[in-house]
């Protein structure tokens, strides 16, 4: 994934991204950190073509505009910050099946994938529940499972640890690492600094624009940098 000089202004005039450039190589886990309103969500929404700003966003060497919508969706899986935005079907099973069905897979393959992620995330017992009856943490897991069932090459997670208890955070980290070992490139936006050393190969620090880039330890050790970015 490659982003070059990306600028984006919301219709109401809010400047959200200013000359953002970023590279993520295949197989990496990269974290994007920054204070509230830094534009992390806005940036992730550019990766699958949901928002279109001025600048270049390339996935696997091709600009996102050149992709057909379904092709792009197969490449980039985006897990939204609020699971309520994502889970909309009357049962969890059907919700997870939604993506794979849209990819045009046959019924058997859809069921196989749904059941695989359900057991992977220990959600099997909730398969017939409606999403609004699940706890927030369970919904968060379900939203991730629903995207993984589509087997994307790049997984972008928006604040995956927000509002999760410590155990769920640990489980999530393990799950993300496992996914990464299977060859999926992972991009995580977060302001949970504690998890970063365990998970991120590299960090981009941003606030509208990229302020710093480097290995986790280096960025996290630079307290004055984090303070300047408004994160501490």
């Amino acid at each position: 994934m490659e982003v070059r000089d990306l600028n984006f202004t919301y219709p109401d005039g809010t400047l959200a991204l200013e000359d953002v450039s970023m590279d993520v190589h295949a197989g990496e886990i990269v974290a994007i950190i920054g204070p509230n309103g830094a534009g992390k969500t806005t940036l992730l929404l550019h990766l699958n073509g949901t928002l279109r700003g001025n600048g270049v966003v390339k996935i696997c060497g091709r600009r996102v505009e050149e992709y057909d919508v379904k092709e792009l969706v197969k490449k980039v899986g985006l897990v939204f910050q609020d699971p309520d935005d994502q889970l909309f079907m009357p049962t969890l099973y059907d919700d997870i099946a939604f993506g794979p069905i849209n990819l045009g897979l046959d019924e058997q393959e859809v069921r196989r994938r749904v059941e695989e992620v359900l057991s992977e995330f220990r959600l099997f017992e909730y398969r017939d529940k409606c999403p609004h009856h699940l706890s927030y943490g369970e919904r968060k897991k379900a939203a991730l499972a629903a995207v993984l069932a589509m087997k994307p090459e790049i997984l972008a997670l928006d604040e995956p640890t927000a509002n999760l208890d410590p155990k769920s955070v640990r489980e999530l980290i393990t799950a993300i690492k496992k996914i990464n070992e299977e060859g999926v490139t992972v991009i995580i936006s977060t302001h949970n600094l504690e998890i970063l050393p365990q998970i991120a190969d590299r960090i981009y620090l941003m606030n509208k624009t990229v302020l710093a880039e480097g290995e986790s330890d280096k960025i996290l050790a630079d307290v004055s940098l984090l303070e300047r970015a408004g994160l501490l």
Binding site: N48, T50, V73, I101, M150
Partner: peptide
Amino acid sequence: RVFWAMRARGYDGSVRML
């Protein structure tokens, strides 16, 4: 946002169910 999230999972105007 719900619409964006649906499109991110390949929504093309109709919702099919098993």
